[in-house]
Amino acid sequence: MSGRFEARGDVDIIWIDNPPVNAISQAVRVVLLDGLKQAEANGSIQAVVIACDGRTFMAGVDITEFSGPLKSPGLPEVIDTLDAFSKPVLAALHGMAFGGGFEVALACDHRVAVTSTQVGLPDVKLGLLPGSGGTSPPTKRTARTSPRSPGALSAAKVQIGRSGRFIGQ
């Protein structure tokens, strides 16, 4: 597992590289929290992008960690940090964003994806609710009025594909 931080002007990119599917291991969670902490402390950084190397975005939690006690930090801590973060965070999706990976994306303020990206919450096929909290913060965040959140109406006016049509018009 490797992670790196790249500043491009006033945008910080948190790169995750945990082949083969960028599973969300303890090391990935630490990289995410460290990257957010660095970006928060740097006054010249205005926004953060979470991106992944390889063939996919984060495609779920690392199931090898299920054999023992959960190692800190847990994914709910990452989700809570994203929810409380003062700067806009964008998830750059490609490949798959399943389970915990999709919850991380949902906890971000914005998401962009290549057209072939697949997203989903496989937990529900097992009769389970997604457990990291990533499916509930968007409602709170959309209703919040802060410099980083344009509000529900503005957020709904997003351009869709190449059609040039906008939602909310």
Rank of each mutant, 00 (worst) to 15 (best):
M1D: 11
S2C: 09
F5C: 14
F5V: 12
A7N: 13
D10C: 11
V11K: 05
V11N: 04
V11Q: 10
I14C: 00
D17N: 15
P20D: 08
V21D: 03
N22S: 00
I24Y: 05
I24G: 01
S25K: 02
V30A: 11
V31R: 06
L33R: 14
L33M: 14
G35A: 07
Q38C: 13
A39K: 10
A41W: 10
I45T: 11
V48A: 07
D53V: 03
G54W: 07
R55Q: 14
T56H: 07
A59I: 02
G60C: 13
V61W: 05
D62H: 11
D62M: 08
D62F: 06
T64C: 09
S72D: 03
L75H: 03
E77Y: 13
E77V: 12
V78Q: 04
V78L: 03
I79L: 03
A84Y: 06
A84P: 05
S86I: 08
S86D: 12
S86Q: 13
L90R: 14
F98K: 05
G99W: 01
E103K: 01
A107W: 03
D109T: 04
R111Q: 15
R111S: 14
V112H: 09
T117V: 15
L121E: 08
L121W: 09
D123A: 15
L126T: 04
P130G: 09
S132Y: 11
S132C: 10
T135G: 05
S136A: 11
P138M: 07
R141L: 04
S146I: 06
P147A: 10
P147L: 04
P147S: 09
R148Q: 13
G151P: 12
A152Y: 08
A152W: 06
S154D: 13
S154V: 10
A155Q: 06
A155N: 05
A156K: 00
Q159T: 01
I160W: 00
R162H: 07
S163Y: 01
F166T: 08
